[in-house]
Design a protein around this nucleic acid. Sequence first.
RNA 1: GGGGUGUUAGUUAAGUCGGUUAUAACGCCGGCCUGUCACGCCGGAGGCCAGGGGUUCGAGUCCCCUACACCCCGCCA
Length: 604
Amino acid sequence: MARFIQDIKRTHSCGELATGDIGKEVVLFGWVNNRRDHGGAVFIDLRDRAGVTQVVFEEDVRPEVHDLAGQLRLEYCVGVRGKVVSRGGNVNPKLRTGEIEIHATELEIFNRSEPTPFQIEDRIDTAEEKRLQYRYLDLRRAPLQKTLMTRAKVNHVTRNYFTDAGFLELETPFMGKYTPGGARNFLVPSRLNPGKFYALAESPQLYKQLYMVAGFDRYFQIVRCFRDEDLRLDRQPEFTQIDVEMSFVEQSDVFDVIEGLVVRLWKELLGVELARPFRRMPFDESMARYGNDKPDLRFDMPHVVLTDLVKQHQGGGVPLLDEAVKAKGIVKAMRVPASAGLSRTEIDKLEEYVRGMGAKGLARAKVADGGEWTQSPFAKSITPELRKAINAATEAQAGDLLLFQFGKESVVHTVMANLRVHIAKRMGLIPEYGSGGKWNFLWVVDPPLFEYDEESGQWAAAHHAFTRPRDQDLPYLESDPGRVYCWRYDLVLNGFEIGGGSIRLHDPEVQARVFKAMGISAEDARSKFGFLLDALKMGAPPHGGIALGMDRLVMLLTGAESLRDVVAWPKTQKGTDLMTGAPGDVDAKQLRDLYVKSTYEPGK
RNA sequence: GGGGUGUUAGUUAAGUCGGUUAUAACGCCGGCCUGUCACGCCGGAGGCCAGGGGUUCGAGUCCCCUACACCCCGCCA
């Protein structure tokens, strides 16, 4: 007797049969997506990753097969043999295969299924906690199947693109030496070297630069990276980067290559033709107008920096603003057009929202017909001159609402940046995915090389210590590090940073000066980065590169709301895996073998 | 480290001012049905209301603590 799998092989997927196949005998394998038992006839929607096909078991054709079909329940895994038949007048327009059905002559139940903890439907309304606990069931759903297929295709297109362009796909170690600065590393104890630890690579940065020194002048890798930092909607502790490095290039060469990739991805995955070149914006402008270096430019509603205006007017009669600028803080405002129609209650809610981000409050002013302010803590004391100047600077019209933040620069930027997006969402300025969508790509360029770290009182690398400063700024490296700008760039899409890179420092002399400006001694630099510093001294070519966040690309390509929806097996916000229970305990012997002892005391 | 939201059948939710036996839909179990496709009809089972403590004559409901999940700040060169 012929058996499924051994003798009866699958002939088609559940997503491909159409009227052209009518009359064929076919074999489908899959899962019971739905059943409708009418007594004399049993209808089964059979599902695999390609789609769904209706199978009919009729009592008067094969009574024993019909009886077995009566036992079928949701998610049973089965094989079916039968004939493709036209549905005649019973077409189901919602199914791709809805013009045909299979009249089954044979059925095998490969495996029954207990009732699943949640139903496998396209619509996802199950708590994420439950979905993650049974991720293998969650992944049976069509939307996640589609997402992972998109992910596979992104990998495929990327490999083809770079390989065609003469790049070599080369690997780098995951287990390396800990280097300070940057993200916190996951550590791996070394059994063979008691008391020593490997660090899991937070990026292949140093190795890819060394590939350049070695002469592999065009490198790429689709690579996992590990960072032991707190998680977010768009941050997982292990994530995938499309990592690229090139020799003998300047910034625009990197942009050309990456724009080419992105254009190809959007065309092949979405059929969308993107315009090139992508827009560019200096870092300082991005901070001033949008409060961060990853502005969502699908809508405008910019911030206006009022610090200088307030200074010119000696505080303009408003003690709070005066104090803020005297304490070296900044003052920013944002004009919310009257059309937003924010009620007083809604504005009060906004105040709660910004307090959660460290704001002390949310000063506001409603602009009246003559330009006067109402509903504002400033209304009584502000001088008409400053008020008029602010109205002019923000282009405020009657009915508009002005929102203010003042004080510590970093807080003001963060609060205003989030507020801008928050209000835009409420106003419906951000189009839904798939609604003709906007793809606002942006290169944020020319950031400062250093940022001042108030805790240590030191200038620290804003990104990493191997970024090349602008030649014209080199004279200020010692005298005024804050005005040294560099060849670093971020690629931003719709408010998400999807990539970042730089032209690297290949000149050992400048490198030494950068370390010095950062307060890192030559000995220190040697012990931490000696191998790279040596390499730079041995004919290192001018080089630069970039890394794209592959997970974020897929998230944006698919319209997913969270990185967890584009990662097959994601971690929770506390870094746990609800399915396997990782991270878990290990026994004492394992720890002894590794010369590791836990100091953790529960409850402390 | 900090701020916020949430946790009620297997799942998703409702549950009023603190009041009697905690509802519904889907799923599950039993029965009927040959054209359904969110099939339909009849019947049934299923709950430590996250856990602990408190207030009260009485708590799913009010208060406190804990756990877990999510969102944000810090952090993420």
